[in-house]
């Protein structure tokens, strides 16, 4: 297959897209909570880099604002908050066992291929770079879900959830040059409030079941004993 001629911008986007998926894979393999938070911040930084790049290359000056929002929210604020919480809950040295590690990685690879399959029909619509970016963002969303499914730790679930939001942001930036400003602000607000509420929940869950293991959240079930 001949390699089509990409502009420098497109090449850069593709490169960052690959790195974003890579961070998602690293998260799936990360045992330690603090390492997980660093990976999440790194993914946020990559996202901000893409946005700033798009703002510079296209040029869409309003994307600089989005990049700034991402840096404050996802690289600084939320990781710092999560870090403070796990220190206060005395969990920053905890490591979580990884179940069926090999299978999870295989499933993750399969999900990436599946995302390419889903966006396949959009083929003749736009440039190859956009299509790749779409597939990558869908893959990040699905890998975030996989992370939530395979882990038992509440903090990991929150990071998986936020990684899903990262994937959506990436889709919006790479394929449509960002959403309208009012929507972007609204989404950022929601993410911030969600992060605060998650923090509140850590303490509630901790005080009610004396651990942060979701397997022990099992009081409500359909069939009662």
């Amino acid at each position: 297959m001949p390699v089509p001629a990409y502009s420098v911008y497109e090449q850069a986007i593709l490169f960052i897209a690959a790195l974003v998926v890579f961070t998602s894979f690293l998260m799936l393999g990360q045992k330690r909570l603090s390492g997980m938070i660093h990976l999440f911040a790194a993914q946020g930084a990559l996202l901000a880099a893409t946005t700033a790049l798009a703002a510079y290359a296209l040029p869409y000056p309003h994307l600089y604002v989005s990049a700034l929002i991402i840096v404050t929210l996802k690289v600084i604020l939320i990781p710092a908050m999560l870090h403070r919480l796990i220190v206060r809950l005395d969990m920053h040295r905890d490591a979580e066992p990884l179940y069926l590690y090999g299978y999870v990685m295989m499933a993750a690879a399969a999900l990436v291929m599946f995302s390419y399959y889903v966006v396949e029909p959009i083929e003749h619509l736009s440039t190859l770079a956009t299509r790749n970016a779409m597939a990558v963002s869908l893959a990040v969303v699905l890998l975030g879900m996989l992370l939530m499914i395979t882990r038992r730790q509440v903090v990991t679930h929150v990071i998986g959830f936020m990684a899903i939001e990262n994937g959506l942001f990436f889709a919006a930036v790479a394929s449509t040059q960002g959403m309208p400003m009012v929507v972007e602000l609204g989404i950022a607000f929601d993410v911030l409030v969600a992060a605060v509420i998650f923090g509140v929940f850590f303490f509630h869950i901790r005080s009610s079941i004396d651990s942060l293991d979701v397997d022990r959240l099992n009081r409500l079930s359909e069939v009662e004993p």
Partner: peptide, 28 residues
């Protein structure tokens, strides 16, 4: 703040949060 209600709220938060993220992808 009963253990049951916290469990219910957590489930609600995670399921609806992840679910509605799909709708954002659709909107994009």
């Amino acid at each position: 703040r009963s253990p049951e209600s916290i469990e219910a709220a957590w489930k609600y938060f995670i399921l609806c949060g992840v679910g509605i993220a799909q709708a954002l992808f659709g909107t994009v």
